[in-house]
Each structure stands twice: as structure tokens, then as C-alpha cells.
């Protein structure tokens, strides 16, 4: 992608972030998500429970992680802030890393209405072909353990 900005979020705040690795010279941004920090998102709060804010210790921990990464810091509505950042840098698209939190996928969908979004994969812990049986850990681990240790064998 030509002239993108990079979106970092709370699942990829390290040097292995594939967007930072792929585009080391492009501006990157992290947005402190106001709704999430207020406990209004299922990432931090029970959808049927009372809304309670996230503690300062969690915010401080994130902040210290972010100071060691080349990212601009904002707070507010994530999609709005990312798009404003993209405009400020004349970006033609957004690159981010793949993650688990459904909130991030929803934000990317909103962003895609304005700019193309490229999602880069993070190196997995274990690669499993086809769908995994997640009914209980033991069923998953029967398959995964063999694959994980196979990579130790290769190195050793």
C-alpha cells in the first residue's frame, strides 16, 4: 500500500507488530478508546452489567508500553481519530495487525468506509490446518502440542 498510516491497538504493542515492521517509516497512531476505558465495550465490561471505568494502572501500563514504540497518541473515538490522523498525513490507506478482539474488527469496518485497510498477520503460536475442536482444552491441545513441539525439533 502506498503512503498508509499505521494503526496500533492494545493487542500489538511490541516490536513484532507486523504493520510497524512492514512500514517502519510511516506515521503510526494509537488511540485511547474512550468508550472502552469507560467500560462501555465488551472488551472491558459486561454488556448487561453496570458501566464502570477501567483503572488508571491499566492505562498507565499501556502508556509506558506506547512510549517505547514510535506512535502518536490520541484519545477519543478510535475511528474518528484514526481518520483525522490519516488526513493530517495525507494517507491513502491504513495498515494494522490482525487480532482477536471483535471491537477492533468493527472499528476496521468503519474505517474501510473511508479508506482501504490492510490487516497483517502476527506470527502464530501454532499453525493448525482446518478448524480446531475447542470444546475443551484437552481436545485442542492433543493437536496443538504436537505442532508446537515440532518447531522445537526443527530448531534443535
Amino acid at each position: 500500500m502506498q503512503r498508509p498510516i499505521l494503526l496500533a491497538y492494545g493487542e500489538a504493542l511490541g516490536p513484532a507488530n507486523p504493520a510497524l515492521l512492514a512500514y517502519p517509516d510511516r506515521p503510526a497512531v494509537f488511540v485511547f478508546d474512550s468508550a472502552l476505558l469507560a467500560g462501555l465495550s465488551p472488551t472491558t465490561g459486561d454488556p448487561e452489567g453496570p458501566n464502570e471505568p477501567v483503572s488508571l494502572q491499566r492505562i498507565g501500563f499501556l502508556y509506558e508500553c506506547l512510549l517505547e514504540l514510535p506512535v502518536s497518541l490520541r484519545k477519543g473515538d478510535v475511528a474518528e481519530e484514526v481518520l483525522a490522523f490519516a488526513r493530517a498525513h495525507g494517507a491513502e490507506g491504513i495498515v494494522t495487525s490482525a487480532g482477536t478482539d471483535p471491537r477492533v474488527a468493527a472499528i476496521c469496518q468503519t474505517l474501510e468506509q473511508q479508506l482501504p485497510v490492510e490487516v497483517l498477520a502476527v506470527e502464530p503460536f501454532v499453525q493448525l490446518e482446518g478448524p480446531a475442536d475447542l470444546g475443551r482444552f484437552s481436545r485442542y491441545w492433543r493437536r496443538a502440542e504436537r505442532e508446537v513441539w515440532a518447531s522445537w525439533g526443527q530448531e534443535g
Binding site: 488508571l56 491499566r58 506506547l66
Partner: peptide, 12 residues
Amino acid sequence: APGALSPIRGGR
């Protein structure tokens, strides 16, 4: 946000 900074530091 309630509370203060944790003694546990963030960062790589």
C-alpha cells in the same frame, strides 16, 4: 479512572 500507577512497569 480510579487508582494510581501500578508498580509494574509497561514496555518492552
